[in-house]
Write a protein that binds this DNA or RNA. Structure first.
Lengths: 116, 116
DNA sequence: TCCATATATCAATTATTCATGATATATGGA
DNA sequence: TCCATATATCATGAATAATTGATATATGGA
């Protein structure tokens, strides 16, 4: 993941509809959602939603799969990992304990435990 | 941290100079860097850098402190925590193990260990 | 007080991005 | 093949953001 990819991803997430779409799909988990369902839930017109989904897809934040006439979209967790990794690379001037709290409170019941 | 704050933060990070500034300050850790130093390292003009620092500051991603005639800037790790938390809230359709890998490989030698 | 240094703000031009109407493509069923 | 449904693409005007030269503010020292 290079600078350009990261910039693209942040740009994708800096628009309200797209941010909501991504969160919706994060919450949907492995089931994902159909394009039409997303548009309906967020009350966004068809072509606008299509364009926004395309931006997120292109940014590596979503995956999709055709299902008959519909297309199902999923959040791509690897994208988030890449973003965070890039942002925090070589962080804290060599003192990791400084940034621990920054990632110590993430949803999903995932916590940082003491190294075994 | 509400939607507006998160959008502002992502917008702040979706510009090349600002992304570089933030990473530079993440790497600088608690020492931070003076505004002038940052501009010099990244070869960005004074007023452009000032404007960009202001955007990051306003987005809650930096803190600053005046030191005589200079101003020292620091990365605000709480900002990143807020972003990630918002993004991954209620994630994975109730199956946390799905998103574990997404945050399992972050720099800073921070890793997710099995719950004790 | 006067000057030099460091940073911030302003106004204006240029460049990007967004939503939209119209239209195209793709799939499934009759 | 013909039609309906679901999604994608295109062109365009409107809104937003970025950079720059000029200038203002703030601090420290003589």
């Amino acid at each position: 993941m290079d600078t350009k990819d990261v910039l693209t991803a942040f740009a994708a997430l800096s628009q309200e509809t797209r941010l909501e779409v991504f969160r919706l799909l994060v919450q949907a988990g492995e089931e994902g959602l159909l394009s039409g369902e997303i548009g309906e839930r967020l009350q966004v017109r068809q072509n606008t939603m299509s364009a926004n989904l395309s931006v997120l897809l292109n940014a590596g934040l979503l995956r999709n799969r055709r299902e008959g006439r519909s297309v199902r979209y999923f959040a791509d967790y690897d994208g988030v990992r890449g973003l965070l990794g890039y942002l925090m690379e070589d962080c804290c001037g060599g003192k990791p304990e400084l940034c621990r709290p920054a990632i110590d409170q993430i949803a999903c019941d995932v916590r940082i435990w003491p190294r075994p």
